[in-house]
């Protein structure tokens, strides 16, 4: 790396430190602390006592300094408390895993097919994959709501043939569907970009050497596309496990995911950024695990690609 290229990386390094490193440190700080209230002489206060002091201070016409001070105290309580939400976390991991596997099975053959097309066709197909991404994520999910509802378009269509109505919305299946629909492009694109690099001659060589279709797939195409599979899994699983609006709109609110739980800590009745950060931190561990496992998939081939 020469000196000049180092300078040109500086804007992003600055961006990264301000918007990624600093917030991560803040999450760490919040996760391992709790807010404790003190009065001006240094005595610890309960919430009610603090409210009382403020009321007195207001009544006295705001004489003197504001009577309550807040300090952060180190604690493991938040992390321990996260244990209470195990079922939610496990539920999110399971649903996200199902969505990821289905995305892989849907996306893999399609990406392979596209990568073997003429270049002009490939461009069109890729545009079709990208097309839904041009629309707002929330609107797309909202549209699924009107499709899946009891009086929705799908049930009304099935009614024409005397089938149904089916209970589709407000189920875990609907949540998984929402995840697949929204994150499928993130599976296809990295797969496609890796597969276009597989030379047709390599596959022909496999046939020449006596491999049948299955052998060619398992011995040539699959190993060569491993980096794409790895980054595809990461790029689907990570957003899927932390999503929150999909479960709210399609899951009817009863299929709470870990993302909803984190949202609740910040925007719920109990404003508790400490617990919210602790849950985020635990989620981060799972995401890191996912990344290190998928990295393992292509460890001795090419380095992983992210799109």
């Amino acid at each position: 790396m020469n000196r000049r290229s180092r300078y040109s990386a500086f804007p992003y390094l600055l961006w990264m430190s301000v918007f990624i490193i600093v917030p991560l440190i803040l999450i760490l700080v919040f996760a391992f602390t709790t807010t404790v209230k003190f009065d001006n002489t240094g005595n610890r206060l309960t919430n009610d006592q603090a409210a009382e002091l403020i009321a007195d201070w207001e009544a006295s016409g705001k004489a003197g300094d504001f009577p309550v001070k807040e300090k952060f105290y180190f604690t493991f309580d938040n992390i321990i408390q996260v244990g209470n939400y195990s079922s939610t976390l496990i539920n999110s991991v399971i649903l996200a895993s199902i969505a990821t596997v289905i995305c892989l099975f849907l996306g893999y053959p399609f990406a392979y097919m596209v990568s073997r097309m003429r270049v002009s066709r490939q461009k069109i197909m890729i545009m079709f994959i990208m097309l839904p991404m041009w629309m707002n994520f929330l609107l797309r999910t909202y549209a699924w709501m009107t499709l899946l509802e009891k009086n929705g378009w799908i049930n009304r269509f099935l009614e024409l043939f005397g089938i149904g109505p089916f209970e589709m919305i407000n189920t875990q299946g609907a949540v998984v569907l929402g995840m697949i629909y929204n994150f499928l492009p993130y599976m296809i694109l990295p797969l496609y970009s890796v597969m276009t690099k597989i030379d047709d001659h390599t596959i022909e060589a496999a046939y020449d050497l006596g491999a049948n279709r299955v052998k060619a797939l398992t011995k040539v195409i699959l190993p060569l596309s491993m980096p794409g599979i790895a980054s595809g899994i990461t790029m689907v699983f990570v957003p899927a496990v932390s999503t929150f609006i999909i479960s709210k709109l399609l899951g009817g609110g009863t299929n709470m995911l870990i993302g909803d739980l984190i949202e609740l800590q910040f925007l719920g009745n109990t404003y508790n950024p400490h617990l919210g950060s602790a849950i985020s931190l635990v989620l981060l561990v799972f995401v890191l695990l996912c990344i290190s496992v998928t990295n393992q998939l292509d460890s001795d081939k090419t380095e992983g690609v992210l799109l």
Binding site: I80, I90, N91, D260
Partner: peptide
Amino acid sequence: IDNLWTELMSSANGVDIWLLP
């Protein structure tokens, strides 16, 4: 209230709290 609410909204119940750690 928020804790009870979360319990109500999470579908699976009865998971041991030590499972997560």
